[in-house]
Design a protein around this nucleic acid. Structure first.
Length: 551
RNA sequence: UGGGGGAUCGUCUAACGGUAGGACCGCGGACUCUGACUCCGCUAGUCUAGGUUCGAAUCCUAGUCCCCCAGCCA
């Protein structure tokens, strides 16, 4: 993925840890893992974890496993397993043959649970979930031992086997580690290891009715895969003592080390799977791939190139301090990438008819337009010109303020790649709205330059009315009105009613052949890409910077 | 008021006892057949108070503020 020309990786504490471990000869190769639970679609926050894990492994000559943490069949689905793989691949990462599932280890995990029981390190608890909660104590008060805490090894073994055999209903009993009910770290107050869930599992079907939870599956899975550095987010800090306790009490083949980093947060963006799921299920968006969603599927459909996402993650960096990245940084990465790669076209979002009075009726011509000034190799194309055109409504003002360079009565501007035109008259309807502009053109300025050296301040995009294609254009705005939707009581109530604007635009004919998903630039407007929906539909990926609008 | 973490320009992030640097945003200017791009410049920061040291963002002490944890979720 990287090459000699790639800039050096940015320094961060994870790289330092791995680098030091390698220098000390602790490992032959670095092994990391990206461990999603298949209970939803991946989002831009996952992209950070993916990049960190895959990049560090690669930089230090190792590999990164893709492991599905599928330990809770009540929430997981094959659809998500498939989507997650597609998304990681789209981002540009390859796990090769290192695809694993926690469910692959269910038998081993079960044996290890018995191992704990035999050593007196775990017991079967018959308390209800409610009783367990009540006896766990509080942040400041120690918990109370379960009345079942001192069962004999034989009884525990018998009960655990009968749990596996399906003799008990959901919630009847759990397997708990016997650690310390008075521990300051609540994760150590006899944490639950196994619970009864009579539900079909996407991979193991009905072979199991007891499932290990995160704590009993994660570290051991890491150990089984010989993961060297288990990189996760900050909220798992308190689980590390348990992670280490389990590895120390089990016959695991290796002892991975866990390190935590801050997860990604972005302004105006919600990145909690729970809430994203609500958006989808509550039909507030069209689906997981709605272009307004921060999911990889949504961003892809919106037209965000994967390399821009990877670049973004790199620029954001990695640290242990919680932070919220300005969405503007993301937009900047997308624009930078697209500016270099997107072919230019002309499209008019809000058409205003223009008639060139001195251009012969019925005549027309094809004008040469450069496809991408940033990439000479992109070539050029022909754009049809004729007497009747459309320009952007925003490009005309009857009474222009001082710094308005565009069209106004008597003003002359350039139509990109075409001619200089001068506005002679603004035709209004009964309501007093400008509905058409009568202009004249300078035939000598063909191509966009006047032989007399005359300059114009503005260049407008346009389309020939007779040749234009009508396209549906979907303009996306932030899904939320507040920059910190996650802190809202109910984020759903903070949805931006204007997050989607659908308009009918006029675009140059070449756009009729636009390929779905291929980014294009509508000159002076922004980057777009054709949507997968039938017909000529474009999504706005991101607008161009607009220093005039800001003023 | 238990346990675990964290505080550096507006935002994100470097620095590993020795010139606080970069990116984004913002603001100027140059250029321009995209008010884009590009280029140049500017603005702006070490949570507070002490201490150690020739020298502290970095080490020590005491505070302050923020985040996480009481699922049979991950």
């Amino acid at each position: 993925m990287s090459d000699a020309a790639a800039p050096p990786a940015v320094s961060n504490f994870l790289r330092e840890i791995v680098s030091r471990d390698m220098a000390e000869g602790k490992h032959k190769a670095v092994v990391t893992r990206f461990p999603p639970e298949p209970n939803g679609y991946l989002h831009i926050g996952h992209a950070k974890a993916i990049c960190i894990n895959f990049n560090i492994a690669q930089e230090f000559g190792g590999h990164c496993n893709l492991r599905f943490d599928d330990t809770n069949p009540a929430k997981e689905e094959q659809e998500y397993i498939d989507a997650i793989q597609a998304d990681v691949r789209w981002l540009g990462f390859d796990w090769g043959k290192n695809l694993f599932y926690a469910s692959d280890y269910f038998e081993t995990l079960y044996e290890w649970a018995e191992h704990l029981i035999r050593n007196g390190d775990a017991y079967i608890d018959d308390q209800s979930a409610e009783e367990t909660r009540l006896n766990r104590g509080t942040l400041t008060e120690p918990g109370k031992p379960s009345p079942f805490r001192d069962r004999s090894v034989d009884e525990n073994l018998d009960l655990f086997r009968r749990m596996r055999a399906g003799e008990f209903p959901n919630g009847a009993r759990v397997l708990r580690a016997k650690i310390d009910m008075a521990a300051g770290n609540i994760n150590l107050r006899d944490p639950v290891l196994y619970r009864i869930i009579h539900t079909h599992h996407p991979r193991t079907g009905t072979s199991w009715c007891i499932y290990p939870n995160y704590d009993f599956a994660h570290g051991q899975s890491d150990a089984l895969e010989h993961v060297t550095h288990s990189l996760c987010s900050l909220e798992y800090e308190d689980h590390k003592p348990l992670y280490d306790w389990l590895l120390a009490h089990l016959p695991v083949p290796s002892h991975p080390k866990q390190y935590e980093f801050a997860r990604l947060n972005m302004t105006y963006t919600l990145l909690s799977k729970r809430h994203l799921t609500r958006l989808v299920q509550g039909k507030h968006v069209s689906g997981w791939d709605d272009p307004r969603m921060p999911t990889l599927a949504g961003l892809r459909r919106r037209g965000v190139p994967a390399p821009a996402l990877v670049d973004f993650v790199k620029r954001v960096g990695v640290a242990r301090a919680n932070s919220v990245v300005d969405i503007a940084m993301f937009d900047a990465c997308v624009r930078e990438m697209l500016n270099k790669t997107a072919s230019r076209y002309m499209g008019v979002l809000r058409p205003l008819k223009v008639v060139i009075e001195n251009y012969p009726e019925g005549a027309g011509e094809d004008l040469e337009a450069v496809n991408n000034p940033e990439d000479p190799g992109a070539g050029s194309r022909k754009v049809p010109f004729s007497r009747e055109l459309y320009i952007e409504q925003d490009d005309f003002m009857e009474e222009p303020p001082k710094k308005f360079f565009r069209l106004s009565p008597g003003a002359e501007v350039r139509l990109r790649y075409a001619y200089f035109v001068t506005c002679r008259e603004a035709v209004k309807n009964a309501a007093g709205e400008v509905v058409e502009l009568r202009c004249t053109y300078d035939p000598a300025s063909k191509g966009g330059n006047s032989p007399d050296g005359r300059k114009v301040k503005a260049t407008l995009h346009w389309v020939s009315a007779a040749h234009a294609k009508t396209a549906e254009v979907r303009l996306y705005n932030p899904l939320f009105t507040r920059p910190d939707p996650a802190s809202a009581e109910d984020p759903i109530s903070e949805l931006n009613p204007n997050s989607l604007e659908v308009i009918e635009a006029k675009v140059e004919p070449a756009l009729a052949d636009a390929v779905v998903g291929t980014p294009v630039q509508f000159e002076r407007l922004g980057y777009f890409c054709r949507d997968q929906d039938a017909g000529l539909v474009f999504n706005r990926t991101v607008g161009l910077r607009d220093t005039y609008a800001k003023a």
